[in-house]
């Protein structure tokens, strides 16, 4: 973990989880696992946050909330989907009100399986996420474009995108 030179702050949002993963996210911050000793702090303000922890799958009513929080976060940022529900819907996948995993709405950088995800796994994912955050920070410093292409644009012009890829290669 020597690459952590800054104190990453996290923000947590409960998509439509059962609380199991949420209390495990909180448990990571508590004396037993205590990630706060690395300077990782849970903040309530998306504009202060570097890492977005999402638990639970996305539904019709909260998809805009998730999107809004993501858009408010400053670049570079990392999204971690915690628990099987956040990965792909899990046991609730077949429910009428579930759209699916978090990646149906926003890009996800790290996935944590498990029902409920164990604190060790969550910490591992956040650490992995910090590695990605560092890469993104480097990329940003080098002036490379970070924003993923708009999904509509990608769908509208797949050939163009492919050609561009060839040119770069």
């Amino acid at each position: 973990m020597s690459y952590i030179t800054k104190s990453p702050w996290v923000i947590h949002y409960d998509g439509s989880s059962c609380n199991g993963c949420d209390i495990e996210v909180l448990a990571c911050l508590m004396p037993m696992y205590d990630v706060e000793r690395f300077g990782i702090i849970n903040t309530g303000n998306p504009k202060h946050a570097d890492v977005f922890l999402v638990t639970g799958s996305v539904n019709e009513q909260n998809k805009n909330v998730v999107k809004q929080i993501y858009e408010q976060m400053p670049e570079p940022k990392v999204v971690v989907a915690i628990g099987i529900c956040a990965c792909n819907g899990g046991i609730f996948k077949e429910c009428y009100n579930i759209l699916g995993g978090v990646d149906t709405v926003i890009p996800v950088d790290a996935y944590v399986p498990g029902c409920a995800a164990r604190p060790e796994a969550i910490i591992d994912a956040v650490v992995t996420g910090l590695g990605i955050l560092e890469q993104k920070r480097q990329a940003l410093a080098n002036g490379e474009l970070l924003k993923e292409p708009e999904p509509e644009a990608a769908v509208a012009a797949p050939e163009e995108a492919a050609e561009e890829g060839k040119e770069e290669a």
Partner: peptide, 25 residues
Amino acid sequence: GFIHRGLEKLVEKKEYPEMVYVIER
């Protein structure tokens, strides 16, 4: 209603011994 999943309706898709896993969640 932010986290309404509608899991009661899963009874149509899960047999009664399986339903306990849904209800626990």
